[in-house]
């Protein structure tokens, strides 16, 4: 993106904006009423018993929160961009932790279940996703080439495929494969069924991404290659794909991340992946939130790993050109 070279005053440094922001935030805090929470307890010396403090207590709590909030923003605004980003990230993360903490989580319960979640759940999730990603990528390359070809059959088959598999909900595809194939006499286990459904569904999305990536390479590249006497396969492999890949990577990374999380749908087939374990382990002891939040953090950590890998690859291609 282009960042303009003319710098405007920061909104946060304009009194009008600050006052407006403060009033708005105050109104929101007042409406949400934090009197009966931890914040009320903190202010007990000032407002007395929070439950009996009435309008004054509610207003005082809101005011204090507003001041903390606005001063925080104001202070952050003086830092450099990178520091700002880091501080805001940390603050939001702490808020998220506070939110999780508010469920009165039993840490020992989490600790006792985490080994199974990781050894079994995380392993299965990664295993299903990784295989599906590889198959989907292969399907996408073939599908994209078929869609760009002059061969009527190839085009028809690939466009029918993308239309069908983009048109059906993934969960429905899962059931069609898992429940449908056995009726036709093909027994499929839950894991292969999940891998098949994920590969076919994401292969269809990625076919479109790859097709668009290949098409975005200027016609002149094909013409110059043809004029040198290159054949189609050579042009695709050596000229077009190397240029299309940097364009394809960001949306493909998105697909990988989405697929990783959609592998949780395999839980409905009883596959012991993260989501399934999160639901079943917590159920018996009514400790749902413990397990769900643990699974949430693991999924999140996994996607962060994928994001970092994607950024690395993008960086590598940027240096090259």
């Amino acid at each position: 993106m282009f960042v303009d070279t003319v710098i405007e005053d920061k909104a946060l440094h304009k009194p009008v904006f600050l006052i407006g922001l403060s009033l708005t935030v105050l109104a929101i805090f007042f409406a949400l009423n934090f009197t009966n929470t931890l914040f009320g307890e903190f202010l007990r010396p000032v407002i007395g018993d929070p439950t009996e403090s009435g309008f004054f207590g509610r207003f005082a709590v809101s005011l204090v929160l507003t001041i903390i909030f606005v001063v925080n923003l104001f202070v952050i605004s003086f830092f450099k961009l990178k520091v700002q980003v880091a501080i805001v990230w940390v603050e939001l993360f702490l808020l998220f932790l506070a939110f999780a903490y508010s469920f009165d989580l039993k840490m020992s319960f989490i600790q006792s279940r985490i080994p199974l979640m990781i050894s079994r759940g995380l392993f299965t999730t990664i295993y299903i996703s990784a295989i599906s990603i590889v198959i989907a990528t292969v399907i996408a390359i073939i599908g994209a080439i078929a869609k760009l070809s002059n061969n009527g059959f190839a085009y028809a088959i690939s466009s029918f495929y993308t239309s069908l598999f983009r048109g059906l909900p993934l969960l429905l595809q899962l059931f069609l494969i898992y429940k449908g194939l056995p009726q036709l006499g093909f027994m499929v286990d839950a894991v292969p069924a999940a891998i098949t459904a994920l590969s076919l569904c994401y292969g269809a999305y990625m076919t479109e991404i790859f097709r668009a990536g290949i098409q975005s390479i200027p016609r002149g590249q094909w013409e110059a290659s043809r004029a040198l006497g290159f054949k189609f396969n050579l042009i695709l492999r050596k000229i077009i794909l190397p240029q299309a890949i940097p364009i394809i990577i960001p949306p493909t990374g998105n697909q990988f991340i989405a697929m990783l999380k959609d592998s949780s749908l395999a839980s409905v087939l009883g596959v012991w992946e993260l989501m399934y374990l999160a639901r079943t382990l917590g159920q018996r002891d009514f400790r749902h939130m413990e397990m769900l939040l643990t699974a949430a953090m693991i999924y999140w950590a996994l996607t962060i790993v994928l994001e970092v890998i994607q950024a690395r690859i993008e960086e590598k291609y940027k240096q090259k050109s």
């Binding site: 590249q221 290659s225 004029a227 190397p242 240029q243 050109s321």
Partner: peptide, 13 residues
Amino acid sequence: IGMVFQSFNLFPH
């Protein structure tokens, strides 16, 4: 047959 184009069409990668 060599061909030179108006827009060069070198392979940028």
